[in-house]
């Protein structure tokens, strides 16, 4: 009777210091929690980085992860936004051989993806969207021979005027 594990998305604001990301990641490693995706970048405030982190965990484990993230001195704010109104997006590049370029370009239209590089031997497609949409695009492109694929992992932002840090 193991509790159900579902995907959880955390937004973590950390001080932009060497080692801060290491501490966050180490916390998951130690508890043998695999990170599905992780993105880090600067924010509107200097000295503050923002991490979007997606893991699979049951509800109590997710709550404990959040509480443990809070204990890190470099961590300013943590939110498990899984159940909140948020926009989640991911970006991917897909590189394919050039022989099916017509078909690939048609698929791009359907999925609203963009061609960012086109050469005699290859075509590279860029797509931004929900993880489902990107999964769909990749499935659709598979028959045309994907030679390289890169995904950013998810970034998330709350809908409406409130940002994680002003909420306490």
């Amino acid at each position: 009777m193991t509790p159900e594990r579902t995907s959880h998305t955390f937004i973590v604001l950390v001080e932009d210091l060497p080692g801060a990301l290491n501490r966050v990641v180490s916390l998951f490693r130690r508890r043998v929690v695999n990170i599905d995706s992780l993105t880090v970048g600067r924010t509107e405030r200097s000295g503050v980085s923002r991490i979007t982190l997606v893991v699979r965990a049951d509800a109590n484990a997710a709550r404990l992860l959040e509480a443990n993230l809070y204990k890190l001195v470099d961590v300013i704010e943590v939110r498990d936004v899984t159940a909140e109104p948020v926009v989640v997006r991911e970006m991917a590049f897909v590189k394919l051989g050039a022989q099916f370029r017509g078909e690939v370009m048609q698929m791009c239209d359907v999925f609203r993806a963009r061609v960012v590089d086109l050469g005699p031997a290859s075509i590279t497609v860029e797509s931004t969207g929900s993880q489902d949409k990107i999964d769909g695009l990749i499935e659709a492109l598979k028959p045309f021979g994907i030679v390289e694929l890169v995904r950013t992992g998810a970034v998330a932002i709350a809908r409406g005027p409130i940002s994680p840090e002003v909420q306490t």
Partner: peptide, 14 residues
């Protein structure tokens, strides 16, 4: 040193 002691300190500094 900070890497080794990261999981066994409340916090550390270089």
């Amino acid at each position: 040193t900070t890497g080794i002691t990261l999981p066994i300190t409340k916090h550390n500094y270089l």
